[in-house]
Simulated scan of single mutants.
Amino acid sequence: MMKLDGVVAFVVTAEAGSISAASRRLGLAKSVVSERLAELERTLGTTLVQRSTRKLSLTNGGRSFLPRAQRILREVEEASSELAARSGKLAGPLRISAPVGFGNLHLGPALGRFLRDYPEIDLSLELDDNFVDAASGGFDAVLRHGAIGDGRLIARRLASSRRLLVASPGYLDECGIPTTLAELERHRGILYSNRASDWRFATASGWSVIRPRAGLRVNSGMLMREAATEGLGIALLPTFFIHEALANGTLTQIDIGQQAEGAELFLTYPKDHGASAKIRAFGDSLRRTFGSPPYWEKIPGI
């Protein structure tokens, strides 16, 4: 009979890329993971994983079995979650990915509240600014800000954020305050390197994309905020990065009479996974912590 712990060992090994990485993720010795995997192969009568000293790869049988094995584990986890929810208690693992900057700034209190409400949940959070595939990355759900555009995913909106043009008072004293899109384009910009057309503004004729001279390109919103504070140029950032800097005056909002494209925060998960009771509880908890409108939108005078 096929044992569930062998299926777990196979799926985690396939997703992690090695038995060593799988053992770390599962909190088990490499020998235990390897033996469970070997036992599953004996039960199925086929080799699932091709092992070598350099790398690990799936055989044709392993590639065929993987989506079915993942579905088995999802069904077991969802059934367990539903039973726990009916009894008023949620328990078990929940693996989440989130962007680094947003996670560092806002997820500490949110996770504290969630785990106080559901102490039996074993939560794992990984912060990563690279694209994380919620459909095949081994996570139960992924927090993202910005457009989703992936038909494999369900996206649950958690909160919104305006995106504001900001600069330091010193930069504006030295270089002047732009009041139109044309003037803005002549300034130094601190640009987010992962979006080619990041500065989009709503005008009477539709969206207008501005491409200022790049003073700095970087893939970190937090570093963009610090660069703007240091007077390196103008940045267009979500309020969840800059609400405190605007409140204490280290950054100043620039008003050019046009509204920039906003940012939305979503909790995404695969359609074929479905929203388990734990994912729903996690999303509900985040929304309660962030508020409606979220607390980072409540900036005095802005």
Score class of each variant (00 low, 15 high):
A147Q: 14
I299F: 07
R116D: 14
R24C: 09
S80K: 14
L37W: 05
G138N: 03
T13K: 07
G103W: 03
A260F: 12
G6H: 00
A277D: 08
E78K: 12
L181Q: 05
A9G: 05
N194Q: 15
A260T: 10
G291K: 09
Y118W: 15
G27R: 05
L48C: 09
E39F: 07
S87E: 15
T250G: 05
V33P: 00
Q70A: 13
R68V: 12
F139Q: 04
W207G: 08
H273K: 09
G17M: 04
I19S: 00
W199V: 07
P212H: 11
F201Y: 15
G138I: 00
T180H: 13
R42W: 04
V132N: 10
G103S: 04
P67D: 14
T43D: 15
K271S: 07
R188D: 11
E230G: 05
Y171T: 05
F201W: 14
F241K: 02
E39S: 07
A84T: 10
P178R: 11
V209G: 12
G206W: 09
V166D: 01
D128H: 04
L158S: 02
Y118K: 00
A21I: 12
R188K: 13
E82C: 12
D128E: 14
R36Y: 02
P119Q: 12
L125A: 02
A16P: 03
R25Y: 03
V12I: 08
T252D: 04
G170R: 05
L125M: 06
L265C: 12
T47V: 15
T180Q: 14
S23W: 00
E261A: 06
E15C: 01
K278R: 14
R36H: 04
E75K: 05
G301C: 03
G27I: 10
S23L: 02
D255E: 15
